[in-house]
Design a protein around this nucleic acid. Sequence first.
RNA 1: GCGCGUGUAGCUCAGCUGGAUAGAGCGUCGGCUUGCGGAGCCGAAGGUCGUAGGUUCAAAUCCUGCCACGCGUACCA
Length: 539
Amino acid sequence: MLLKELKKAVKEAGQKIFDTDTEPVISRPDEKFGDYATNAALQLAKNAAASPSQIAQQLAAELKSLPGIKDVSVAGPGFINFRLTDEALAEGAFSEINLEKPLSGQEILVEFGDPNPFKQMHIGHLYSYIVGAAISRLFEVSGATVRRLSYHGDVGLHVARAIYGQLELGEGATLGLAYALGAEKYASIPAAKERIDAINLAVYDGNDPEINELHRVGVKESFDYFDKILDLLSISTDKRYLESETIEPGLKTVKANIGKVFQESQGAVIYDGKKIGLHTRVFITSKGLPTYETKDLGLVQLKHQDFPQSSRSIVITATEQTEYFKVMLAALGEIDHALAKKTTHLAHGFVNLSSGKMSSRTGDVYSAEDLINEVHQAVQQQFPESGQDNDTALAALKYDFLKARLGGDITFDVKESVSLEGNSGPYLQYAHARAASILSKAAGTMSTDAQIEFDENERSLARKISEYQEVVEKAAAELIPHHIATYLYELAQTFNSFYEKSRIIGDEREALRLKLVKSYKDVLSNGLSLLNITAPEKM
RNA sequence: GCGCGUGUAGCUCAGCUGGAUAGAGCGUCGGCUUGCGGAGCCGAAGGUCGUAGGUUCAAAUCCUGCCACGCGUACCA
């Protein structure tokens, strides 16, 4: 709130004194400088005769009498620092969490996860699910209605391999074993390869009852298995799309646009991405089969049919698909500009394990289950009596994925992720539990006094708490959940520092401090909920 | 080759719509029990922000070259 008022005031002051229009940047400076700062004077100095610090002085004089501002000072090359009154700071820290809802009334589609039936869910999918769930929450707190979607490759060679394996192994074979057998035979035995290729076509055609049945059962079994993991993670999906459903609308779209958007070349139908600096890609193969790009065009249409009112559509995948998505969206843009415009591809990096690089191509993958189990066991070992080990393990897992900036590869060091010291999910949960414990022990009532005067440590904590809203708004606007994680960790550190020096229960300042603890706890819990991490009262 | 991305402390990472002495965690070293949960706090050591230039009053942040790594690059997804 105050941030926007300040920005407006600085803008107006610039206009009034220098008759210049600026877009001032208001930042949160180092605490010793103040509570807010702006470099507006440095910006204005570019086209003015006066020096930056002179301009800053003039602006500062104009801004001195703003409500809630205790002190305005000029420092360094021309920064203007604002120090808030304790009352204004308290208002920011103590008022109910009431986030702005700029997306109110909008429906937003978020696709993420996307594990393939007949295969394991690996840690890349896990990362995608955890990121997607957090992004979805960010949209929700911004006021949007979110549809959580996922897309699953139920056709293609991997399916044929698994079905081949099942036929070989007979009833009762697990999908994992069947897939492994199929993959191995496909690579080593020519006859098996031929058979698998035939199964692949049969899956497409849907004319072989036995294969159809294996396919149907396999998809169901896979989804049951995914559901089990997602339940454990407390992550939900509203609707699943199957690759096989997208073929028809995809092909129809591409065929209708041959000669306009697409061209025939060497027997295939392609989109010439080169003309706009992208890759040229095949949409329909020379055998007449649709590629992933065509199916994705179909998927976009299915989503649009199901959710015609949606204003945005986000697709979250690993970075390897970044270039591909540009081509697909460019082609879509020529067919349906509006649809392409509201679709955004968001990429996350690869998950490396400290124990070695994973490869999804060779099937030599680390499964989501393995990682979950490993983190779980480590937590149990460290805290055998906790009784909250599931919540703790999930916090460790999710937080470790979410604390890194989206886009780059991450290295998941299992040992480090379960080390519960430092910047970790369990640290934040513990911080929350400790605050809860203080509040439950306290007999005193919280202050309702409007005349507030903070001491140094109280002020630092109040200042940090009051930043929360700005952080969430930024994270939501930029679709970067890690801002939340970084902030929560800093907040907990600020609190721990305050806590070390300030007695709460029994102190003469108890009423005010309890109020701080309560606000702190509320922010922690709210922030963790944005990351889909629980905030336990006890651990 | 071309395109996209990454390169910040021993390790893992923040900071990147340019701004005030480059920040955390882990690890290392040194402190803190009469007090509400020590999964904590305080401090120290540790940095040519890949490299060479450029733009700017100001560059980790923007631009260009180069180096290293990752991904993509016509019928996989």
